[in-house]
Design a protein around this nucleic acid. Structure first.
Lengths: 354, 354
DNA sequence: ACCCTTTAGTAAATCGATTCTCTTCCCGTT
DNA sequence: AACGGGAAGAGAATCGATTTACTAAAGGGT
């Protein structure tokens, strides 16, 4: 029992240089049982009876040998992976990147890590990735601008999700307010003939945003002219899409003094198209975007836009998910959390000329 | 032995609805030993002796009950996590997002997932994160624009890393070519008085890019005027930084007809500053950026810039890392891999007026 | 009838840590 | 002298899958 105790640290200063120390080797080295060390290292109440001398010896030696408990073993034992999955359409798209940036902070602070997967709007991947993440033992999933149809055995938080699905908490923008902010702004500037660019069908926000626009227009006594309405086509995230539809709008004949685009990227394309057609912004046509991506502020003229608090939405998503993981099954989770948009007025909007 | 075999699938269609099936329960259900099932499921050569009838029965039942081997248990056994870590300065920065987007494809195809952590240039986090990732049992690390000082027990690939560190493979841009492309372009347009915006000290590219500029200038017989040289300060990634230093350059008195910025973000700020000073682009001053972020093409005038193949760099990083993981220790890994930049000429550059 | 080879699997160790249940040993009481 | 009880720590089961070594029965050849 005491023969091993003579193996003091000074005798074997550097142990096996190859293999990282594990509990067993540390135990052998200390002449103690793995169980004892585990209890002490985890400050378990059961280590009450271990004298401070021994505790200190264990702690000191663990630190000296740089012992790190094997995460996988621990996870297996506790049935907890401290990992969540984040599903996005495309990492490099700005929208998703911004949300992810908000997600990270809270997660890491609580000791969680996250896997990222991007599906690029491929239906099979949208279906498959959540399952693969589950196999990877994630404890929850955050879906960004990605439809989740089926209930899963882990909590899900969907950023910009609109469908009501069992087990899914939606983080949504107040689209009514967003539409009102934008249209009121244009209305007050005297705009009555307003063109619209709708989003692609796959974007979760498209429908509710469009409904909100109709409502807000109704409240203001504006009419939404179908001839002044275009829809983005194609899944690229380049302003070229906005450029194309705006050219069509301009050529279609019906006059307009303002354009409300589905997002900033298409608004930027629209601005080009408008200028290419020989019109000025905001002199001839005012333009309002949506999202407030970084490029919006970098345009000239600076793009007036409805800001979505994307980073904040990421933070809320992470917090909500962690809460739900913590008290799993404890009470019904909130169905949805609404965040408020903000109108950022820059130089792309001005009083209507006609 | 055969009493269990009578438990045909039709008798118990839906097993325990709560608990996910594990190997043991599946084995019990089939009246076989876990070992047998494992061998068959993994198509191990040792399953040679199992008759096809039994194999089919196992496979069918596994599928019906939706059995998925527990990833953690498997990882523990094999000492493989199929996970790598990606360290970036900031997820939402475009540069990192683009590289990540390239990383993802190859990784997922090979069954790997990745953790993302962002350090926001905090020295303690840069030091700490790789260690935490190691605790999480990652099999390799990709560092994007992040210095890695010390050798780690796993392969590391550094995108835009320049230091030679044991165990680190650098993916670097050919900065000499980049500088030559930009300066030759400006030179051919007749520019002789060129201003420069250097990068922040923390950016890994700053030094080598600056050396390359000196070299290229030398080759062309241009001189780099210290009075026409500014350096970005502060770690925000807003064009405001570029705006500030450009204002100083313009006020400093020394005349210039072209500006070569450290990156597109600062170039965009610079363009604003130039216009605010009453000069035109490219009439009075030509501007060249670096990176070719999405916003570069969206500017007006469109920003001429040196494109880094960021997505490609991500792909190469992932491929290289996977190779190194695969044949660990097998031969010395490449010290560095160079990729080539491309000059994207848009409207922000034109012939020098004076 | 005996031995050898397949066939059809199974038992048990292992990966590394956790945790509940036991032993001892020793000290102080009655 | 016997007993209770706390101190100090050891043992063993467990998480779920993998894998090597082994067994038991059946078939085939001489």
């Amino acid at each position: 029992m005491s023969r091993k105790k003579t193996a003091r640290s000074e005798d074997f200063p550097a142990p096996d240089p190859e293999q990282p120390v594990n509990l067993k080797s540390l135990a052998e080295f200390l002449g103690l049982a793995p169980a004892t060390i585990s209890l002490v290292m985890n400050r378990s109440p059961a280590s009450r009876s271990i004298p401070k001398r021994t505790k200190d010896r264990i702690l000191a030696e663990a630190k000296r040998l740089n012992y790190r408990p094997n995460f996988l073993a621990r996870s297996l034992r506790h049935q907890r992976s401290f990992t969540i999955g984040v599903v996005v359409p495309e990492v490099s798209e700005g929208y998703a990147a911004m949300v992810m940036s908000g997600i990270e902070d809270d997660l890491l602070r609580e000791g969680y890590f996250y896997f990222v997967v991007s599906h690029r709007h491929r239906a099979d991947l949208i279906e498959e990735y959540p399952k693969i993440l589950l196999e990877r033992a994630v404890e929850g999933i955050i879906a960004v601008d990605t439809p989740c149809e089926r209930a899963l055995p882990v909590p899900i938080v969907s950023v910009s999700g609109h469908r009501e699905v069992e087990g899914v908490t939606n983080i949504v923008l107040d689209h009514s307010l967003a539409a009102r902010l934008a249209l009121q702004h244009l209305f007050q500037l005297g705009h009555r003939k307003i063109a619209f660019i709708k989003g692609q069908a796959f974007s979760s926000d498209t429908e509710s945003r469009w409904r909100a626009i109709h409502e807000a227009a109704g409240e203001l006594g504006l009419c939404v002219n179908p001839k002044l309405t275009a829809r983005l086509e194609g899944d690229s995230s380049s302003p070229a899409l906005g450029y194309e539809v705006t050219k069509q709008l301009l050529n279609a004949g019906d006059d307009f003094t303002a354009l409300f685009a589905f997002n900033d990227v298409s608004a930027i394309g629209a601005m080009r198209a408008i200028r290419d057609a020989g019109r000025t912004i905001p002199g001839d046509i005012s333009v309002v975007g949506f999202d407030d991506i970084q490029s919006a502020a970098f345009q000239s003229p600076g793009l007036t836009t409805v800001r979505q608090p994307l980073r904040r939405m990421g933070e809320i998503a992470a917090q909500t998910l962690l809460q739900r993981i913590d008290q799993s099954k404890n009470g019904r989770p909130p169905k949805s959390i609404t965040v408020e948009p903000e109108l950022i007025i820059r130089e792309s909007t001005a009083a209507a000329s006609r």
